[in-house]
């Protein structure tokens, strides 16, 4: 089954850490990413640039309307994703629980849509 793991974090949090804590945080993410890729679980992953650089597009009067900023004005913003293939939801949750984000943010686990049989 395919799932997307999405990490939501408070973007201001990183700058509040000491340099040593920041290094440790980066190392933790690197280790997690290497592990999930090496296990053949994740086929791809991505890290998003800050939400301040986001742009949203809606439609108004049949024309696209372009606005600055992310869709949701929430404290935690989408920071990255992993696309994983695992036997079931429990396995997906197990990998989510290993993700360093859980200490300071939230990991969302979302199944991909499959054709009904």
């Amino acid at each position: 089954m395919q799932f997307m793991l999405m990490t939501y974090v408070d973007e201001t949090g990183f700058t509040k850490l000491t340099p040593a804590e920041q290094e440790a945080g980066i190392a933790a993410y690197r280790a997690y990413t290497e592990a999930i890729m090496a296990a053949g679980v994740a086929s791809s992953w991505g890290r998003l640039q800050p939400s301040a650089a986001a742009t949203t597009v809606r439609e108004a009067d049949g024309k696209p309307q372009v606005l600055d900023g992310p869709y949701a004005d929430s404290k935690e913003q989408l920071g990255g994703y992993y696309i994983i293939d695992v036997p079931d939801l429990d396995a997906a949750l197990a990998w989510a629980a290993r993700c360093p984000t859980t200490s300071h943010g939230v990991v969302e686990v979302r199944p991909f849509w499959t054709e009904p049989s």
Binding site: Y8, A72, L89, A96, T102, W113
Partner: peptide, 29 residues
């Protein structure tokens, strides 16, 4: 990629020592 609906999502945080799993998508928008 297309997702299953929002109610199939699960959220995982850490509460103390243990992961805490919630139902539904992260954002309530």
């Amino acid at each position: 990629e297309r997702f299953e609906p929002y109610y199939t999502a699960r959220t995982v945080r850490r509460a103390g020592d243990r992961p805490a799993v919630g139902e539904g998508a992260y954002a309530d928008t």
